[in-house]
């Protein structure tokens, strides 16, 4: 399926620290839900999310099926300055990958 570009990544300076907000666009099927025909929908969920600041890896998130649809995350980074590059990559259980990048404002 290739790269998905609907993912949103925002980073903002707030009181000297950086606040990062992530909203990924992904159905996050658990493999337990059924469609209208009563068939199970195959599992499809993000497993691994990695996050970098200026090419230094800062955070790894491992997700199970219990992560909500269109996953949302928010966290803070110590210090930082405007123009820092925040980047993020994710991989789901089927091998689909996503990439998002932003500059700190």
């Amino acid at each position: 399926m290739g790269l998905v570009s609907k993912d949103r990544l925002r980073a903002k300076l707030k009181n000297g620290d950086t606040t990062v907000r992530v909203l990924l666009s992904h159905p996050m099927h658990t493999g337990r839900a059924k469609n209208s025909a009563g068939e199970l929908i195959a599992a499809e969920f993000i497993q691994d999310i990695r996050c970098w600041r200026n090419d230094v890896e800062i955070l790894t998130m491992k997700c199970g099926t219990a992560t909500a649809k269109n996953p949302y995350f928010s966290f803070q980074l110590v210090a930082g300055k405007a123009g820092d590059k925040i980047s993020l990559r994710w991989v789901d259980n089927l091998g689909t990958k996503g990439l998002a990048e932003t500059m700190v404002k």
């Binding site: 620290d17 955070l59 949302y72 995350f73 928010s74």
Partner: peptide, 8 residues
Amino acid sequence: AVKLPFKT
């Protein structure tokens, strides 16, 4: 480098 709170 990461500071809490963490929200999801």
